[in-house]
Amino acid sequence: MIRDALLIAGKDLRLELRSRVALNQVLPFALLVLVLFAFALDPDKSVLTQATPGLYWIAVLFSALLALQRSFAIEATDGNRDALRLSGLDPAGIFLGKVMAVSAQLLVLEALLGVGVAVLYTSRIEGWILLAVTSVVATASIAAAGTLYGVLAAGLRVRETLLPLLLLPVLAPVLIGSTRAFEAALNGSPSEGWPWVGLMSIFASLYVVAGIFGFGPLLEES
């Protein structure tokens, strides 16, 4: 299962390295969102600095939607879905591989977006450990739930509009948790942030387990 996962993750990441869709389209989109927030909220008042955690994670969520769409779009063409099914790879491995690949891309995006926030919103960055752990756990949550709901929407004509409707309400706890944890870290009171990391860890494990068991049947049909 782990070997299959690494195989799939490697394949997806190699595809990304060659096509650079996430780098050339998703990342600029995320930065654009940051700039749009500055247009919408007066940058001279301290709103931007105060709202940095929320704005940051909203930008990450929207970018994650694009990354997930991309992750399933590469399987949709040329009967790749069938090829994947016939490959004999463990469905749980395919699921984990997809989660890993999406997570890796999102983590890179988050790091660059973090630099963007620090520069554009002149936010002071503190509490590095909590920030890093929150990012990893939240990313795993987004990727796991996103991959499970992504395959639910995959292959349908309405997938672009369906995925946000299905996924965003589900990810509400992750948005709440990651934002609160970031706030706690930036305010210099990291002890308030750790319970949220715990909550998101539970969320992530739940969806990893659900994906491991649910991915097989979903991949078989259609």
Binding site: P169, V170, A172, P173, I176, G177, R180, P195, L199, I202, F203, L206
Partner: peptide, 9 residues
């Protein structure tokens, strides 16, 4: 999960 997190929040 949503309810729990919102309540906590």
């Amino acid at each position: 999960i949503v309810r729990q997190s919102v309540q906590w929040w």
